[in-house]
Simulated scan of single mutants.
Amino acid sequence: MTSKIAITPRSLSGGGHPALSMLTDKGYELVFPAPGQTPSEDALLSSVPGCVGWLAGVEPIPALVLDQAEGLRVISRNGVGVNNIDLAAAERHGIAIERAAGTNARGVAELAIALMLAGFRHVPWSDAMLHQGRWKRRKGVEAEGRVLGIIGCGAIGQTVARIAIGLGMKVLGHDPYPPKGFSPEGYRQASLDEVFEMSDAITLHCPPSENPLIDASVIARLKSGVLIINTARAELLDDEAVLAGLESEKVSCLATDVFREEPPEPSNLLSHDRVIMTPHAGGFTEESVTRATETAVYNLLKVLEQ
């Protein structure tokens, strides 16, 4: 009987990837619960049971699905975050969890910088005005000499820091576990208070906690006109507080690549004309997808073939 492997990342389930041939060459049958889409819980329940491996994306993987996934030995993420997985349930069933750490760092970092520059220069708003036949301008700011605060200084945060320094920015980095040996000129490890109070732009590259990292009390302490970039997790922000910050212009722009639901439901925050959105595309580059897929496949085989 052929062993099955579920493939659920949207970047792979719609059109496949050459790296997946490493699995079929080994005799595995690939199962695609929702080609080109984020699979629903029902789709997972109908497809994952009977699979020995699972190459997973950012879709929620609850205990209910894992409880039904008899025979599943390993979940291999095509990224580093695993907060979408019920880890207690996985441990209870003896399911190994593998991560493709660092593989999408460059793609996410470049998008974070692109969002920052687009916010500094009001690129989406200007484009929208011209498409409407309206010749209107908003005065922007230049990156050189500005302070970028980075919360989360792993592979992505460090890459962001290097690019920002290349733009002439001063960089403050905060991480509860500061990276060893990372101290380029123009970068300084800082407290969370310093990042909040001194940054002209703040970019998030950390996992979510029980409560939002940026809420009304934090926004009150930020520099006036701060730009917030979020390519990490939507739960890091208090949406109502950020909306109030935009309305008061304490926050000049929110640029986000992540949402609580994907695709997101319309909201007052997301419809604001100083919110820039991209559809969770940080790691969706040719290079990042290839690195992440190859690593995820290697990690699957490492567990299944041992």
Rank of each mutant, 00 (worst) to 15 (best):
K170M: 13
L222H: 00
G140E: 06
A164M: 01
H17W: 04
L44T: 04
L270K: 05
W135Q: 13
E194L: 00
N230C: 03
V289H: 08
V123N: 13
L66A: 00
E247I: 15
V74L: 05
P178Q: 04
M1A: 14
E240R: 07
G157V: 09
G81H: 01
K26R: 15
A6H: 05
M129G: 07
A101M: 14
E265T: 14
M277H: 02
R99G: 11
R188E: 15
Y298P: 04
T159Y: 07
I202D: 02
S13P: 07
S13T: 00
E185D: 15
C153W: 00
I7P: 05
N83Y: 00
L87D: 09
T203C: 01
H280S: 04
I214G: 07
V58H: 13
P18K: 03
V275N: 04
A69G: 11
L20C: 03
P60H: 02
N230F: 08
D273T: 11
A56P: 01
G27P: 01
A143N: 06
D127T: 14
V58A: 14
E286P: 10
L236D: 03
H17M: 07
R274W: 13
D200I: 01
A105R: 05
R221T: 14
M169H: 11
G152F: 01
S209P: 10
P208R: 01
S191Q: 07
W54D: 06
I156T: 08
G36C: 01
T103M: 12
P184M: 10
V82I: 13
I156K: 08
T278E: 00
A216T: 05
E247P: 09
E41W: 10
H93E: 06
A255L: 03
R138L: 15
V160D: 10
S46I: 12
N230E: 11
I214K: 03
G173F: 08
K250M: 06
S76V: 09
M22D: 15
P178T: 10
I276Y: 04
L227A: 09
T203V: 09
G133K: 06
C253P: 13
I151K: 11
A88W: 02
V80F: 02
I7A: 13
P207T: 02
V52N: 02
P176G: 11
F120W: 12
S13W: 08
V48R: 12
G81S: 03
G15R: 07
P263F: 09
R233Q: 10
N104S: 12
M198H: 15
L44P: 03
T295S: 05
D239S: 00
S209L: 06
E265K: 14
S191R: 01
N83K: 06
G173E: 06
